[in-house]
Structures are given as C-alpha cells and as structure tokens.
Write a protein that binds this DNA or RNA. Structure first.
Lengths: 253, 253
DNA sequence: ACCTGTGAAGTCCTTCACAGCA
DNA sequence: TGCTGTGAAGGACTTCACAGGT
C-alpha cells in the first residue's frame, strides 16, 4: 500500500491548542448569529450556551487568542467575529476544488456554508466524461484530465475528495502533486500523504457506528448473548451525551 | 438556551474510552479489507498501518475489548472482525431514518456504507409535499406529517438530520419525542436534546475552517491581505516548516 | 525470536476557583 | 458588583518500554 508514511510526533500550532482551533468555528457561528441580531456584547456564559460548551472552556479558548473581553461586561460581538475570522484565516479567500461530483459532491457544491465564509468553489472535477460541461450549482463540471491545470490556474490549496473509495488515493496523490496542501476527505479510506499536507476526514458510516455503540448500551443489553461476555449490568443512567464536540484530527500521514 | 442542555462531565462508557470507540470502526474497516483478501492473521503493526494509527495505541485499544491476540503471532482477522462488530453493536440491525431529502439527504440515502454494516435506511422523510412518493435510492420519500408514525412503526432509534439549519431543532424535537435516542446531525446548528439522547454532528464548513487555519500557518504569514487592522505582530516561530500541528490519530465527529 | 498486553510516564485538555479589573 | 483571565488541579488519552506468553 501507500508509501511515504510519516508518523510525526506532532508539534502544536503556535500556542493555540488543536482542541481550541476546532471550536473556533463554533464560536464564530454563534457570534455571527448574534451579530445579525445586532447584539452588541455577550458574556462568556451566554456565548458558551449558544455554542454548546461550558463557559470556563470558552474563556480559556479565547485567552489563547488574546484578551479581547472586558471584565464586568463581556465580549464585543463584532470585534470577536473579526478576531476569530482572522485567526482562522477567513479574512482571505480560499479557492477550493471538489473532486467527484456524485450525489455527495453535488451536495457539497450546493452547500451554502462553503461560499459564505471565505471559501469559494473554484472548480468541480469528475472523471466521467459525460459530466463534463454540465453545470452543478451553477458551476460547470470539468474533466479530471485537467486536474493539475485547474489547480494551478486557480491557485488552489484546499481540495475536497468526494469520490468513491477506490479512486481517493489516486486523486489525492494528483492533488498533492499539483500543489494542494490541505484535503478534506469524504471517501471511506485512509489517505497517505507526504509530510506537510493536512488531511481531515469526514466519515458518515463511522459516525453511525459510534452512535450504534452508545445506542446498544442504552437499549437494555438483553439482546444477543451468544456465549460470550456477559453484558454489563443494565445501568442506563449513563446516557452518555458527550459527543457534542468533535475531536480535532488532522492526521500527518 | 440555558435549559435543556446536558453537559455530561463523565465520559467513560463502561470501560471503553470514547477515543477508543471512535477508532473501532476504523479498525473494522481495515480488518474487513484483510478479510476479503483472505488474510488469516495480522500483527498490530500491520493493522495499525492500515488504519493510520500507531501500533501501541491499537494494542491498548484492543486491550479494552479483551485479550483477542496471540503473542508471537498477531490477531485472527475473522475473530477480531466479529468481536469488534459485536462491541459496536453491528451484529444487530439498526433501522435509520433520514430527514431532509435535499442534495445531502439523497447522497446519504445512496451511500453504500450505510446499508453495508448493520444499518438499514428504513425511511426517507421530507417536508416538501412535492417529494412525497418520489423514490430516492429506491425508497419512496414520505411526508414529515407522518414522522412520528414512521418512527414508531419501524422501531427507529437512530435519526439522521439533513435539513436546513432552521428546521433542525424542530425536527430533532419531534424525533426525540417519537422515541429516537441517537441523532446524527448534518445541519449547522447546535441541537438541544434531553439527557439520554446522543447527538453527533458532522459539519462541513467547520472542517474546512480548521483546514484553513492550518493552511494559513503554512503559507508563510507573509501573505498579508488587505489593510484594515494590522495583522498580529509577526509571531516569530513561523519558520519551522513544522507548522504541522497534527494529531496522529483520527476521530470522531 | 516474536509479538501481545499493560503498568508507568508523559502530554494534552478540561474544570475549578479566584484574583483582578471595569 | 459582575465578569474576564488564568494558575493550578484534575482527567483523559497517548506513548514508552518491557514483562510475559507462544
């Protein structure tokens, strides 16, 4: 299988913990909603509730960005929106390509959230010649033969892979060779990339499986029981609800 | 927003750490691939490479499940597939409903990974009367008026929300009231649910924003954009190419 | 010899609790 | 008084390194 494995010990991204970075978009969304309602300031308690985290965590998170609040008052909404946007790099424009325009790729192309905040779908790419030229979400699909050219002409550094699993690694390799350094992977495969390339993965079936695990615990363990480990006592008190925040996961390779 | 929230402090789901649970599906996928190639046994080193984690972590993870390996040899592929499947609750059938059959909902309905492993799309639900009856992925879409009945008739405990953000909380409330206790949320909103209900969230724009953050670090901070507020004072460290800031591992959500 | 299983050490993240400032 | 910012304590997860089977 893939070559060039790279297990990096991982260094932190200058001061801001990964876990905090993963929550910034959440705060930003909550703040944007407040901004639209013309709310001028917000306390850590209120904002935390809106973002679904607890206030101590939120304050700690913000403390990594600087001291942007006012004691006794709270945070200035507009100012925070700006600071977080800047920290996340959303004050600049990120051209993105989506490779694999099937159901999912089309859904992504149509997803408003992309365009709304710094991201611009620069091109849609598919391997099916029959798709070429057809517009999806108002953008004509281009054939994957031209992938490298498209990447370079548009200065794309972020690529989204929505192809079938079998094609993902090959597409990934081409994207990387053409200059892409961040990849969002929807294909159910582990991608190998050279050092310096970030991969984040979104995997629908994994999420469902995790839910199934917890679901199984809730629903009286009475099911199966084929000569095996005796199920744990049915203590449904647990009600694990923790999943609200995802863990960051940028894998090196 | 203060009420109805459920901040669970504890995490431990009967012995198995959340982080481990989140990786089990990954191992399972790698094992399934090995199984299809009729590979009889595998070492922690090999399996870890295939799953994209390191071997110590994998062994520790498996140790929570029991001692399923053989020293000096490795793990029996088929046996492990079974044990992990059982642990995840995939040996039983989970009927799932998808609410919101837009681009994304349709993509999910067509996603093979759902059906492949214990999950069965029991129904597709949409609020648009024009959709009613139209088959998507071979399953007729039903109107959301019948949501409660559909849930109950099919004994559904897992729901997928793929509606616009504005409708998500209302749909969530109805699902929960009808008996759903696990929700996979694709809408960009924080859902409030009563204790005992698990919510996992998949948020495309958040993933992109996290990538943008890392991308920004890589592309030498020199690319100062438009004027406005002076960018943060050159944070020295920029140099080390290592702006990796990665976590070796993968996870959830 | 080889590879698993695991105590122990280390790292990262969260939560507490309160000092400090508007 | 009210709320932020943060040291310190507490947990959770990862990695090390080696004891212990086969």
């Amino acid at each position: 299988m893939a070559t060039g494995r790279t297990h990096r010990p991982a260094t932190r991204s200058r001061g801001i913990p990964e876990a905090t970075v993963a929550r910034l978009p959440l705060y930003l969304r909550a703040l944007t909603a407040l901004s639209e309602r013309s709310v001028p300031t917000v306390s850590s308690e209120e904002l935390a509730a809106a973002a679904g985290v607890n206030s101590a965590k939120l304050r700690k998170d913000f403390s990594y960005l600087g001291s942007y609040g006012t004691r006794g008052v709270g945070y200035d909404v507009e100012y925070l929106v700006y600071q977080i946007s800047r920290e996340l790099g959303l004050t600049q424009d990120w051209p993105v390509v989506i490779v694999g325009i099937g159901n999912l790729g089309a859904a992504l192309a149509n997803y408003g959230g992309f365009a709304s905040r710094g991201f611009r779908v620069a091109a849609l790419i598919d391997a099916d010649p029959a798709m070429a030229g057809k517009p999806v979400a108002g953008i004509p699909v281009q054939h994957s033969d031209d992938l490298e050219k498209i990447i370079q002409d548009n200065g794309v550094s972020i690529g989204v892979i929505a192809t079938p699993a079998g094609a993902a690694q090959a597409v990934c390799d081409r994207l990387v060779a053409a200059g892409v350094t961040s990849i969002l992977n929807f294909a159910p495969t582990v991608l190998s990339v050279p050092e310096g390339v970030d991969v984040r993965k979104v995997d629908l079936s994994i999420e469902l499986q995790i839910l199934a695990f917890h679901e199984q615990r809730k629903a009286g363990e009475g099911a199966a029981s084929d000569g095996g480990v005796p199920a744990a006592p049915a203590r449904s008190e647990s009600a694990d609800q923790g999943p609200d925040g995802d863990m960051p996961a940028v894998m090196p390779a």
